[in-house]
């Protein structure tokens, strides 16, 4: 054996640690350095994210970032927090389990367009309709980057890729519009090059009590050059000031606008959150059972089975 372990455990927690000074983005940097290509949009997303954590003063010990598989799904390794880099397409149900297991955690999901709209597409509607209090950042680069340039569910129609030599036959999916249809209570769109507005969107998404989808357009500089990001840089627009984000049909119109790509909060509503609804019925306490768990009612069970 090459490695002898140090004693790892210090003991049971008894006291709270002293109040810490206000954190900065650097305090959330993980042990690993990002391995994305130079110029990748995901760098912008990461720096917006770390700044958002700092502004919200989120405790890294009570933060869990869950991801799938793909370039963007490597993100948990670059953040100092609990992380779960699991299976391709399965980040959403894992995150739901993490949140149900420890409802006090801030739970963030990071994944790509292929992860969330192709292999994992079956989970997206169900997390949205349940209105679980997690934030889903879909980093949309319109291509399969990690496998080096195949068609993704958001690749624009007609584009050449390695698996669409005659141009993509299908028409792309629209994650923000889908989230609206699935019943998400917070739907927003951001752009990796606009770090400051993105940071504000991330903060709003985390603070939203319920399921929030944040689609982040994040170009792949290596394989996604033809995917229309140059145009996006010029055409992306903030939602009109008069847009009422409680209005679902106008949110849908903005999300699907054929000319412009609108960024900002498209939709937000208050609806009972999944876990707090379960908790109101006595269940879903997860690790909070540490504070005292209800006993099994043995007499009732014996009677029930007699």
């Amino acid at each position: 054996m090459s490695n002898t372990p140090e004693p790892q455990e210090e003991g049971t927690m008894t006291t709270q640690t002293e109040p810490k000074p206000k954190p900065s983005a650097k305090d959330y940097k993980g042990r690993l350095k990002p391995i994305w290509c130079p110029g990748c949009g995901d760098y912008g997303v990461l720096s917006a994210l770390l700044a958002a954590f700092a502004d919200l003063e989120i405790d890294p010990d009570n933060l869990a970032i869950v991801s799938g598989i793909g370039c963007s799904s490597r993100l948990p390794g670059f953040v100092k927090s609990y992380g779960f880099h699991g299976l391709h397409g399965r980040a959403l149900p894992v995150a739901l389990g993490v949140k149900l297991g420890s409802p006090h955690l801030t739970v963030l999901i990071v994944g790509g367009d292929g992860d969330g709209l192709s292999i994992g597409a079956g989970h997206f509607p169900h997390l949205a309709r349940r209105n679980v209090d997690v934030t889903y950042m879909m980093l949309d680069n319109r291509i399969y980057g990690l496998t080096k340039g195949q068609t993704s569910p958001t690749t624009p129609h007609g584009i050449w890729t390695k698996t669409s030599p005659a141009g993509v036959v299908e028409f792309p999916m629209n994650p923000a519009a889908l989230a609206l249809c699935y019943g998400a209570t917070f739907v927003a769109r951001g752009y990796s090059s606009q770090v400051k507005p993105l940071k504000s969107l991330i903060m709003a998404a985390i603070q939203h009590r319920g399921f929030s989808l944040l689609q982040v357009l994040s170009p792949c500089v290596t394989f996604g050059r033809k995917c229309g990001f140059d145009a996006i840089a010029n055409s992306i627009k903030e939602c009109p000031a008069e847009h009422d984000c409680r209005d679902a049909s106008s949110a849908y119109q903005l999300a699907t606008d054929p000319q412009n790509i609108y960024s900002g909060i498209l939709y937000q509503e208050e609806r009972p959150e999944f876990i707090s609804t379960l908790q109101a019925m006595g269940g879903a306490r997860g690790r909070e059972l540490d504070d005292g768990a209800p006993e099994i009612d043995v007499d009732r069970l014996v009677d029930q089975f007699s």
Binding site: G86, L87, R90, P93, V94, G97, V98, K99, L100, G286
Partner: peptide, 16 residues
């Protein structure tokens, strides 16, 4: 069933 076991893994990761 995939989501079932995925959620179970998530909850177990959380210590339940």
């Amino acid at each position: 069933e995939i989501a079932s076991l995925a959620a179970v893994l998530g909850a177990s990761f959380s210590g339940v």
